[in-house]
Simulated assay, not measured.
Amino acid sequence: MSDADAAGLPDFRRLPVREAIRWLAEHGEPEDPRPDIDTASLERRFPHLRGIETVEHTVDGAQGGVPVRLYRRPGAEARVALVWVHGGGFIGGHLDMPESNWVARELAARGIPVLAVDYTKCLGQAHFPAPSDDVLVAWRSAPALLGLPADRLVLGGASAGGNLAVGVAARVRDGAEGPLPGGLLAVYPALHANSANPGVPLDPASPHAQLALNFAGSVDALSDPHAFPGEGSGAGYPPALVVVCERDALRPSGESFAGSVRAAGGTVELHVEPGAAHGHIDQPGDAGALRTLDVVSDWLHARQG
C-alpha cells in the first residue's frame, strides 16, 4: 500500500488530469503522507541542515500576495544566490514540498542563499501568464531580498518550475521589466508544449498534452515562447545548467533546449543524472538527488568568480 492509499488520498499520478484539477480546486493541496519530510524530520535525518535560518516574505503580485521564503546559513558570506521555483504540473506543489524546502536547505547548508518562490496554480480559471507573472514579480524583488545584484543571482526551477524560471528569463530578455539573471538553472524542465517529443504534435488524449493545455489556456498559447520557452529562440540567455534524468519521459525537452542555447552561441552545461526518474529531487536523501545537488552546488559556487 502506498502512502497516499494509507492516507485515503487519490493517486494523482493515475487520475485523469481533468479529475485531478477538479479535486485540487475543490479540496486544495493535500498534506503529503510521507512521515519524514517535514523540517524537523529532515533535521533529524540530516544534521548538517540544522541551524538554517528561514524568513517568510510576501511580494505583491497581480493575483495577490506571492509567498516566498528566504534560506540562509548563518555567517555564510555568499557572492551568488539562487531564486528557486518548485514544480507540480502547474496544478500543485508548495514551499514545504521537498523539491522546494529540502533542496533549498541543502543548498543553503552549502553556503548558497536560496529564495524559494510559490505561484498561482492553474486550477479553474487561472492559466498562463498568471503563474509566470508571480515568478516574474518575485524575481524583480529578489535582489533586494537577497542583498545581491541580479547578475549575482541564478534563476532556476524544477519541472513546471523550470518552465517558469526559463520563461521569465525569456520574458525579461524580450523586454519585460526586470533584470536578466546572472545564470539559469533548469532541473528536469518541461519547456515545450510536447516536452516528451519536442516538435511533434501533441496527442490531445495524453496527460502531458492536457497539463500543457491547462497551463497555456488555449491551443494558440501552446506556441507562445514565453509560455513554453523551448518553442522559441535559444539566443540571449545567461549561462545555464540543465539537469535531465536518464529515465524521465521529459528528458528530450531539457536536451533540446540545451542544444538550442548552444546552437545560438550561448553557454550551457547539460548534466544527465544516471538511473534517475522525473521528480528525484523531491525524494530527500535519494542517491541520485544528492548527486544532482552536488552538481548544482558546484556549478553555483563556480559562478562566484
Rank of each mutant, 00 (worst) to 15 (best):
R152V: 15
L241W: 03
G266R: 10
I91A: 02
S132M: 15
V187P: 02
S41G: 06
S2W: 01
D174Y: 12
P252D: 02
E26H: 06
G64S: 11
G230N: 05
G124D: 10
H27R: 15
P98H: 04
Y237Q: 06
L290A: 12
M1W: 08
V154Y: 02
D5R: 03
A81C: 12
E106T: 11
S100Q: 08
V168K: 10
R110C: 10
A130V: 11
E273M: 14
D220Y: 04
L24Y: 00
L123A: 03
S141D: 14
L145H: 13
R50D: 01
P35Q: 07
Y119G: 08
P30F: 00
E273I: 15
A138I: 12
M97L: 12
V154N: 06
A104S: 15
G157H: 07
E177T: 13
G266M: 09
P284C: 09
P181E: 03
S132Q: 15
N197P: 00
P207T: 08
A212N: 02
P113V: 12
V135M: 09
R140T: 09
G305F: 04
G178E: 04
L146P: 08
A249E: 10
A277I: 09
I281Y: 01
G230K: 03
F228H: 10
A158P: 00
M1Q: 11
S2G: 05
A142E: 09
D298H: 14
P98E: 05
